[in-house]
Write a protein that binds this DNA or RNA. Structure first.
Lengths: 88, 88, 88, 88
DNA sequence: TGCATATTACACACCC
DNA sequence: GGGTGTGTAATATGCA
């Protein structure tokens, strides 16, 4: 490890508190994220229960997401171009 | 494929609407999930900015999560036992 | 490990030879793959040398690849649909 | 951005052609690279099919590669020294 | 040295 | 319920 780790080694206890705070924020966000993953699983479960094919559904979702990302990337590329030609 | 696929092939259009609804729910939940993943990255970014080692932090979070899950599983097992012996 | 590992433990030496053969094939392919990665780096290097912005180039390549994959995925999805409706 | 970008902004079209050429070379090399990655996956697949543990195999390949690179680096260092002392 | 990307490892979900 | 394949997260590398 080549970090300076200002907190650890500082025996004031302040940085331990700070680290703990960061960790707790991550834990909290992770819990919410896992809950959403669970929700998603449930939606697929419902769809499957009424006869839809989840593999196909997942492919559709993936494609939609890829489209969205392509569009976003294309816009970013445009911005890069603008900078390149001195328009931004 | 041994799915009944009630929607596909049903030309009433009703199931298409239903499929669309499921897809949109998944998309929405996925967006929220990705946003949380982004938030988590940001927390690690902040921590890194003040000198903490994020790889180590990730290990800690993982350990804490394992503990949490172990505890939860132990509790679930206890519940099962309670039911088994007529205590719940 | 819950593999049967038929080769290891068999002291005939035959499976050791077979394992070695697999490993060598992987090594050979990996070398070729790394050489291509090197070639790609060189192309970017040439482009940079004549004044192109490689970050932009990388974005373009990425977008083109995403398009290609979208098309391929869309075709695969179509196939899945065909199966789903009993056309294939 | 502090690149000169000779091509962009040059409306002769020549640099556009040149850029295109670079892009295509990268795409072609990338395709070959991806094909090799696929081949490697297939080799692991074959090995797995006859009972080998691929995770272990990957570790071995990694170790062998490290050895190879260490050796190569040692040789390169030797060359540097040779030059330094006038032996090459 | 910090960031972006490429690869590798893991975990979940599906099928048998 | 076990194995397989896919998708996602973490790590390692290489560039600016």
């Amino acid at each position: 490890m080549n970090q300076e780790s200002p907190a650890i080694g500082d025996n004031s206890g302040v940085s331990g508190t700070r680290l703990k705070s960061f960790i707790e924020r991550v834990e909290r966000l992770t819990e919410e994220k896992d809950a959403l993953a669970e929700d998603i699983r449930e939606v697929y479960g419902e769809a499957k229960a009424v006869g839809f094919d989840t593999a196909t559904m997942r492919k559709i979702v993936k494609l939609l997401k890829m489209d969205t990302e392509s569009r976003r990337e294309a816009e970013e590329l445009l911005d890069v171009y603008k900078v390149a030609v001195g328009l931004a």
